[in-house]
Amino acid sequence: MSQFNPLEAFNLPIVYWQIIWAGIIVAFVTVFALFAVYLERKISAYAQDRMGPMETGGWQGWAQTIADALKLLLKEDIIPELADRRLFKLAPYIVFAGSLGVMAVIPFGVNLIGTDLNIGLYFILALSSTVVIGILMAGWASNNKWALYGAMRSAAQMVSYEIPIGLSLMLPVLLTGSLSMIDITNAQKSGILADGYFWNWYIFRVPPFTLIAFILYFWASLAETNRTPFDIPEAESELVSGYHTEYTGIRFAMFFLAEYANMFIVAAIASVVFLGGPLAPAPWLNWIPGPIWMLLKSLVLVFIQMWLRWTLPRVRVDQLMHICWKIFLPLALVNFIVIATLVVLWQK
C-alpha cells in the first residue's frame, strides 16, 4: 500500500492542494468521458456483432470520440426562442457541478483525497440530490414537451431510487461507525480473518447482507444515472432524448460529460464503500499503488454498467416504480435493521 501523502510530499498548504486536486479531477473526468464513450461504442458493437468505430485515428478508430468532442465544441449553440434563456443556460452547469462535486470526497489512495469530510458519505448523497434540480431546470426551461416529460420522469426516478441507495450505503457506515470515506476505507483493512485480504472488504464482511446491499446499490445506481434497464427518461422511441432534447453544442456536451462522470462516480462510490477502494486484494499485491486499484475496481463496475445496457431491455414506468418501492426498499430496510441489530449486539 502506498503511503504517499501529497500534503507532506510537497509541503503545500491544504488550499493549494485542494485547488490542484480539483484540476486533476476535472481533467481526469474529461479524459474518462472520452474513453468511456469509446468503450461504450465498442462494447455495444461487440454486443450487436458489429465492429464499432474503425476509421478515425487508425487502430480500432481510437480517435473517434476526440473527433466527436471537437465537433460538439464547434457546433452552433442554439437556444429555442420560447425557452427561459437564463435557466436554459444555467442548467447544464448545475448538473455537471452536482456530479463533479462528489469527487471531492472520493479517496483515490489512503491519503489521496480532495477533502476528508466527517460527513463524507452524506455529502455525496446531498450533492447528488441536487442534480435533480438541474435536470428539472433543463426540462422546464427548454419549453418542450418531450424535454419536460423526460425531466419529470428523471426526477421521479432519481428521487425514488435515492432511498434504497441511501439505505444500502448506510450498512458500511453502521459497520464503520463513521461517515468519513477515509475511515470507511481504512476499516476494510482488517476484520475477523487475516488482515489485508479481500475478504475484509465490506461486500464480504457480513454475508449475505452486505452482498445484497452492494447489489441493491449497484442496481439502484443504474436508475440514478438513467441507464438501461432504467433509462426511461431517455427512451428514444417515445421521448426523442429526454431532458436534453433541445440542447446543442457545448451545453449538450456538458450533459453528456455529466452523464459519463456520473457513471464513474457511482462506480467509485461502490468500490470505496463495498470493495475496499484503494486497498489491494492481498498483502503481496501491496506494491501496486492504491489509485491503480481504485481505478481498476471502478472501471470494472463501469464495464458492467455498459454490458448491462447493451444486453437488457428497458423496463416500463410502472415496473420501475414497482422494483423500487416493493422490492428494493423492503430488502434494503431488512438489511439495514439486521445489520444495525448485529452491530448493537456485537458492541455489547
Binding site: 452524506y122 455529502f123 448523497l125 446531498a126 440530490s129 441536487t130 434540480i133 428539472l136 428521487v159
Partner: peptide, 13 residues
C-alpha cells in the same frame, strides 16, 4: 448535509 438532502433535494423537487 441534511438541509441540502431534505430541502434542496427532496422537498424542492
Amino acid at each position: 448535509a441534511v438541509q441540502i438532502i431534505v430541502y434542496a433535494g427532496a422537498i424542492m423537487v
